[in-house]
Structures are given as C-alpha cells and as structure tokens.
C-alpha cells in the first residue's frame, strides 16, 4: 500500500513539474505582445511551412511505413534483422547527427548530382521534408508494425482460403483492422515532424521566412533574445502537442470490438 502511494506521488510530481514549466510561460507573455505576434506574417509563415512540410512528410512516411511494417511483421526475408535495426536509427541517433549525415551525403557525387539535376535540398524547403522524413519514417514504421503485430495472421489465412489473394486479404482485412492505429501513428508522426529541429536546422538551415519552421522560429527568437516571441511559439507547439495527443487517444480508443 505504501509503495502504491509512493508511485502515485512520483506520477503526480511529474505532472507538477510540467505544470510549473507551462505556467511559467504565461508569466512571460504579455497579452499585447501575444496579439502582435499572432497577427504577424512571419508567425503564419512558420505555421504554414511547418504544417505543409509535416503533412507531406507524414504522407510519405505512412505510404512507405505501412507496407514496410507489414513486411517486417508478417514475412521473413534476408537482412530482416538489419532492416529492423536501421529503423531504430532515429530513436538512438541524435537528429543533428542524422541531419549532418544528410548534409555530408549531399556533398558526395551522388548527392551533388541530385542537388544539381533533380531537386535542391541543402538550405531549401525540400531539405526540411527529407530531414523530417529521416527522423520520422522509422518511428512511423515501428508504430504501425506494433499495430499489425497485434492482428492475428489467421484473419488473413481465413481470408485467403475464402478466395482473397495476398493483397486483397491485406487490403480488406489487415488494413481496416489496423486503421485506427495507422491514423494514430500518422498523427504522432505529424507532430514529430512539426517539432523536428536538429536535422532540419543542420540540412535546411535557419533562414527567416524560408526554412523557418516553428522550432526554428523558437531558436531564431531565442538567438535574438526575444524571449516573449519564443514563448508564444512554444505555446503554439504545446497547443499542437495537446491536440495531437487527444486525437491519437481518441483513435486508439475507437476499436471494433
């Protein structure tokens, strides 16, 4: 009984810690300044570029993560452990290191060819997308794989004996059953992309009104000692974070019994 009380105290102390941090923001921001920043073009640009790049990256990540997660969950193939290991990279390697890795790649022959002939990434908006993709695709795959792992393969076996081919059984059975988890994974991926900083600043730079995503806007304002401005952007990210968490929980709760 005493241990339970200590455990509850630990959980509550975490809540208090975050609550104090959050409350401190409101002591910094004055309503007049908040209003001015919210009406500024730069604020809307940051929101717009963050959302557009995060949306594109989430779409790309989920499009690749769903079949990749299915393969990792259902198939045994050569180098599967290696593929599985590489998906852990974004979790164990610093985003700055991943961004630097991209930057170094775009200075190799192949990278320069892509830069010069296909699409510019370094200090460009597509650089934000690829930086977000490198840090989020593995996480999306992990989340979706966990969802597919929970669905017994027997559903597909049964579907196949009833006449469905491999893709049809995936499309009509596994995908609908994993739908809520995939949406939840997409929402979390989107949030991770919006909040991505390390890889983005390393590859796409911190250029106002160009590669100025919300985290980069916070970084730029802190660099210029604009504490109130930084606080407004932090509040914006927090609001987004809470919204995403609520949406994710809603989708994870809605399950077909």
């Amino acid at each position: 009984m005493r241990f339970k009380k200590i455990a509850v105290l630990a959980a509550f102390s975490l809540f208090i810690f975050y609550f104090i941090l959050l409350a401190s923001l409101f002591t910094i921001v004055e309503p007049a300044k908040l209003s001015a920043i919210l009406k500024s073009e730069r604020f809307y640009y940051s929101i717009k570029i963050s959302f557009i790049t995060a949306f594109v990256t989430t779409a790309l990540s989920v499009a690749i993560a769903v079949p990749a997660a299915y393969a990792l969950s259902r198939s045994d193939f050569r180098f599967k452990p290696a593929v599985d290991l590489f998906l852990e990279l974004p979790l164990i390697i610093s985003p700055i290191a991943l961004g630097a890795l991209l930057l170094l790649f775009f200075n190799t022959g192949a990278g320069l060819f892509i830069q010069n002939n296909l699409c510019g990434f370094v200090y460009e908006i597509p650089g934000i997308i690829i930086a977000q993709f490198v840090t989020s695709a593995g996480v999306a795959t992990r989340l979706i794989k966990a969802a597919i792992d929970e669905i017994p393969p027997r559903y597909e076996f049964v579907a196949r004996t009833l006449g469905a081919g491999e893709f049809k059984s995936f499309y009509t059975i596994t995908l609908p059953l994993a739908k809520n988890s995939i949406i939840a994974a997409a929402v979390l991926t989107f949030a991770k992309c919006v909040g991505e900083f390390g890889a983005t600043v390393t590859l796409a730079g911190a250029m106002p009104m160009k590669t100025e995503t919300l985290p980069i806007a916070i970084y730029l304002r802190l660099s210029n000692a604009d504490i109130e401005g930084a606080a407004v952007f932090i509040l914006t990210l927090l609001a987004l974070g809470f919204t995403v968490t609520l949406i994710t929980r809603m989708f994870l709760k809605v399950r077909h019994g």
């Binding site: 027997r154 076996f157 004996t161």
Partner: peptide
C-alpha cells in the same frame, strides 16, 4: 478449401 480456425476468426470489422 475453406478453413475455420480454432479461434474462429470472424472478421471483427
């Protein structure tokens, strides 16, 4: 060949 597995596996959705 149709198959009824041990856990029945009616598609829940």
């Amino acid at each position: 060949i149709s198959y009824v597995p041990q856990d029945i596996c009616l598609f829940p959705h």
